[in-house]
């Protein structure tokens, strides 16, 4: 019997599910090996009977936790998709601010009706088996994870910094071009795509397992960033991670 898969979203832009829809013919090819039982982005039907759950988005309220726990109970394998789900992503920028003020800003004087708490990756709530990082996810990596799961292998997600891919691509390091980036502490796997295009690495794939963040902060300061600017670099995507950037406010 084909494995049954389901997609779910929490606080997110649905960009990751869109990437999957964008697979077009290859999505059809993938569908020969699986049965999709729930996918709001692409179909109306829904079932609670599935083997693999793909979850996009961060958990941003206590009431989301119930839904997440239910998914965990139903699924054999849970895969987090995208920065928001895997590392908390840009949703965590709000964690550095006063939460009541944030609510007032978004919901106006009815803010008390809307519950919210510190944005967090879904792993902060339930056990996650595999993570497909990036903002949005890379279609190829999603396929490679899907193929691994379908053949009973462990998906390959690199645990080395973006610099590795930058070097393989023969890029001139942005530090030599008067810019700075967080690539030396960020998980590779995107093929250093932003640097290839002349931009910098913002860190959307999150920190590697054992990042030398202290060393990188020193380097950024050596390249004339103020401590505040350094902190902002780390806040963009690493807010939930242990970066010592600043303790989040509850």
């Amino acid at each position: 019997m084909k494995p049954r898969i389901a997609f779910f979203d929490f606080a997110s832009c649905e960009g990751d599910q869109l990437q999957i829809v964008n697979l077009e013919e290859r999505l059809l090819e993938l569908l020969q090996h699986v049965e999709v039982v729930s996918f709001r982005e692409a179909m109306k039907e829904h079932s609670d009977n599935y083997d693999i759950a793909f979850i996009e988005g961060s958990c941003t309220r206590a009431s989301d936790e119930e839904r997440l726990k239910k998914i965990r109970a139903n699924a054999k394998i849970v895969v987090a998709l995208g920065s928001c789900a895997t590392i908390g992503g840009i949703n965590c920028i709000k964690n550095y601010r006063n939460q009541t003020e944030v609510r007032k800003e978004v919901y106006g004087d009815k803010y008390e009706l809307f519950d919210t708490y510190l944005a967090r990756p879904i792993e902060a709530v339930i056990k996650v088996d595999y993570k497909v990082p990036q903002c949005p996810i890379n279609k190829e990596e999603f396929l490679s994870v899907a193929k691994a799961l379908l053949t009973g292998q462990k998906p390959f997600i690199p645990d080395y910094p973006v610099c590795v891919e930058c070097k393989m691509n023969g890029n001139v390091c942005v530090f030599e071009k008067g810019m700075t980036c967080v690539g030396p502490v960020t998980r590779a796997g995107c093929g250093s795509c932003c640097v290839n295009e002349g931009a910098i690495c913002w860190g959307c794939r999150g920190l590697i397992d054992n990042p030398n963040t202290d060393a990188h902060k020193e380097v950024l300061e050596k390249y004339n960033l103020t401590p505040q600017e350094v902190m902002n670099k780390f806040k963009l995507y690493f807010g939930w991670s242990d970066t010592n950037a600043q303790k989040p406010q509850s």
């Binding site: 080395y160 910094p161 610099c163 590795v164 990042p211 030398n212 202290d214 060393a215």
Partner: peptide, 13 residues
Amino acid sequence: AKTCYSCGSCNLV
């Protein structure tokens, strides 16, 4: 090594 990123840049180039 205290400030090494383990980024492999020194190997790859």
